[in-house]
Design a binder for these strands. Sequence first.
DNA 1: CCGATGGTTCGATGTTCGTCAAACTATTTT
DNA 2: AAAATAGTTTGACGAACATCGAACCATCGG
Lengths: 121, 121
Amino acid sequence: MAEENAASSEHPSDVDPEHWNAENYPVPDMADVQLIDVLRAVADPIRLEIVRRIADGKPQPKSRDTWGFDVQKSTLSHHFKTLREAGLIRWLVNGRQHDIQLRRPELDERFPGLIDSLLAD
Amino acid sequence: MAEENAASSEHPSDVDPEHWNAENYPVPDMADVQLIDVLRAVADPIRLEIVRRIADGKPQPKSRDTWGFDVQKSTLSHHFKTLREAGLIRWLVNGRQHDIQLRRPELDERFPGLIDSLLAD
DNA sequence: CCGATGGTTCGATGTTCGTCAAACTATTTT
DNA sequence: AAAATAGTTTGACGAACATCGAACCATCGG
């Protein structure tokens, strides 16, 4: 079963200590994440591309310019929120700078092979 | 690149000869199938369940009762069409009886590990 | 303290999509 | 030929969703 606190699925020390503010943007416990929700999240061209670009697990800034998508920043923000709430990413907040990170180890354990299969071709 | 005829991606002898009418319901060439389309097709609860139940590659009838979904037959028909046009299944037509079949070998070659990852849990 | 910066949230808009009922097509049975 | 059966297609409707602009919030640098 899942834990009470949605943000406590990982020990705090798993997260780079310089990113101290992540608890403002809770992430669902991976045990509660349903496959259908992950699929819905990834069944959008922009979000799929985002996931592919962060597949290595390295944090990437949210800044609109680094992605180069032809959408407004509010739209991009919406996509990041969708990915977080679906359980795919976490937000690493450090001052004004926000990063996103794929929850790769958890995802690989919960849905073996899924992320890998999104990277082909 | 893909072949001209959308229904010619497989040699006819690959299909059970008793199902002779499949050419009325063309299937996209697997080389033309985009990951995003497969994901969209599978990002629906009913269609995901269908794919999981035919994952073994065995043909299954379309008949509403065999599936037990709480939708009208026109809705089910729509889902089958969506899956076919997205490249996931083919239709095997034999008189009044229609079967669907997952294009498993082709899918596994085009998107390694994807179908498998949908079956976990 | 003030402006600039990086990002979120809200409300509105247009599009996509799942669903149904009804009409239709094709095949089999009587 | 007529009725029954199996499935498709069409049109309508509502819900979900991607998008935008504007307002908002927080942080950093003068």
